[in-house]
């Protein structure tokens, strides 16, 4: 079992992050990342299961059940601190039309689990449901999982790596103009 203090630290960081995003405090949000952050999101492939009898008529190699193993052909975000900062700067130009009017978001973060722990680093799994409403009646739901690497920098937990999986193959939202 992970140390209670580490668990609370991770949990509070993720909750605080969710609140900053929903309050559109994006510059404060950027400060939660280390300078070497790698921030990525992928969609999920649409595959037959390995045991499928349909494979008898297909090339099995092409239809292996590769899924949450980090396959990145459906890359949706692939960012470093420079491009994350630029994405936030874009919102400040007054000409980022996808967020004008802004999305109303609610980030729900659940299933927080510490997978690996050392004195200065934590690997943390979590799930998210993000509700987005925009304009008068537009609605989108984004559901997925995150695996974060948290690092203690000068006594403060920061996010040093974020890998996300969005649980869709064909994205049903028109865009990803919000952060996760």
């Amino acid at each position: 079992m992970p140390e209670e203090g580490a668990f609370r630290g991770a949990e509070q960081l993720l909750y605080r992050e969710a609140r900053l995003l929903d309050e559109r405090r994006f510059h404060d949000w950027l400060a939660l990342f280390t300078d070497d952050i790698h921030y990525s999101m992928v969609g999920r492939p649409n595959r037959y299961p390995k045991a499928s009898k349909a494979l008898a008529v297909l090339e099995a190699d092409r239809y292996a059940e590769a899924d949450l193993d980090g396959t990145d052909e459906l890359g949706l975000f692939d960012e470093d601190i420079g491009t994350l900062t630029a994405r936030v700067a874009r919102l400040d130009t007054g000409m980022a039309w996808a967020e004008d009017p802004p999305s109303r978001t609610r980030h729900l973060i659940t299933n927080i689990e510490i997978a690996d722990e050392s004195a200065s680093e934590l690997t943390v799994h979590s799930n998210f449901i993000v509700y987005r409403s925009r304009g008068e009646t537009e609605e989108d739901l984004y559901v997925g999982a995150r695996t974060d690497l948290l690092r203690r920098v000068n006594g403060v937990w920061k996010i040093a790596r974020r890998r996300m999986v969005l649980d869709q193959n064909v994205l049903t939202a028109k865009n990803l103009s919000i952060f996760f």
Partner: peptide, 9 residues
């Protein structure tokens, strides 16, 4: 090198 599929109204 990457694939994107999405639905837009």
């Amino acid at each position: 090198v990457a694939t994107h599929k999405w639905i837009t109204p």
